[in-house]
Design a protein around this nucleic acid. Structure first.
Lengths: 202, 202
DNA sequence: TGTACATCAGTGAACGCGCGTTCACTGATGTAC
DNA sequence: TGTACATCAGTGAACGCGCGTTCACTGATGTAC
């Protein structure tokens, strides 16, 4: 996990890793079938940490909100938790996403339902229950949300947003998340203040 | 370009590439300073093809639309052109995005203003001029749009959308693009039809 | 018209490196009887 | 209580590979005078 944190997948060479542990290269074969299995194990752990970052974000939502407001805050937390994890831990994030690849054939996200994905589904479900997302708008909403939030993460991690400072990216993230939420709901979004950071709270 | 098309960056090893051309490995040093310079050259070309895919998409917009409708169609074309290029040519797309990295220090996207990015800015500009995007909503709109569209491309290329079939991804793409556009504009979006593909035209 | 020289794409061999994986083996720890 | 055996993490050496890069060189083409 330490290696992955700094260097992402590329830092997880079998030799580099066993060297870091202070052990012979092929000692790894006592614990993992091959190199890929090892990487997948690290990826699983990274994905778990992503999920917990999102859960931590959810835990900060005030308890006294109505169900509608709460569900909305939940979706925001899921999205911003995802982005902020990517920004804070780009190496782990890369792994967490990669988790998919090289998996047994017929195991889609829907089937495996990894924790981060499940949190997104839950938030949307709660929104429908609370009446802040019309049922006829539920379809594909998870993908629209995920795409927006993942786009920020990837552009900020490997793309043109990489050279922007953290504050600027945070602002863009909050703006993009608000935009896609209101876009998915079909409700007009409030205009954000032009200069400086937009307000954080409700 | 042929190698990049099938294998992305990973297929652009200096030896693999010169081998494909039918030439000794170090013959490449006649034309490029080193391996990275070669990859960057390919990336530039890939980015150019991305831009032209977007331009082709723009060219299909009916001429008889009013300026507002036209500008909206332009933004849609820019976004869907981006996604569809990514889906059709994932190898080139990977290169086109990578273009950033390993560039001389102080050259941000804004300064270099590569063609695809410029097309996005133009579309937004036209929307403001035509009065279909309020000026106070212009700020950061390019990033919200880019993020959404890039998120689809990346999830469909390396992520969980990869195993979905093309039609499903296209549907998600159109839905996400509509959502983010209406989110950015602050206008309510129409509900899309639940089963089957949503209508393509206005 | 012919000679001398510069340019330049490409050659062939080598260097040093790190990689994932396999092999036969060691040495300590636990467990059955 | 002591012996025999199984388990198991780890060792050390080797295999075969492909990589980016450097070196001195060749051979054809163009150009100046």
């Amino acid at each position: 996990m330490q290696l992955a944190r700094r260097g992402g997948v590329n830092a997880l060479g079998l030799r580099e890793l066993t060297r870091a542990v202070g052990v012979t290269a092929n000692a790894a074969y006592r614990h993992f079938a091959d190199h890929q299995a090892l990487v997948l194990a690290v990826a699983d752990e990274a994905q778990d940490r992503l999920a917990h970052a999102m859960l931590d974000k959810i835990a900060t939502i005030p308890r006294d909100l109505g169900p509608g407001e709460y569900a909305l805050a939940e979706l925001r937390a899921v999205g911003l938790g995802y982005v902020q994890f990517a920004l804070s831990e780009p190496g782990w994030f890369e792994l967490a996403i990669l988790t998919q690849n090289g998996r047994p054939e017929n195991s889609s996200v829907e089937e495996r339902a990894p924790l981060p994905y499940q949190l997104l589904l839950d938030a949307l479900e709660h929104m429908v229950e609370a009446g802040v997302l019309a049922p006829e708008r539920r379809r594909n909403a998870e993908w629209a949300c995920w795409c927006t939030v993942h786009g920020i993460a990837d552009l900020a991690t490997r793309g043109p947003l990489h050279e922007k400072d953290r504050a600027a990216v945070d602002e863009i993230a909050e703006y993009a998340v608000e935009s896609i939420i209101s876009g998915v709901r079909g409700e007009p979004a409030p205009v954000r203040a032009a200069p400086g950071r937009p307000p954080r709270g409700a």
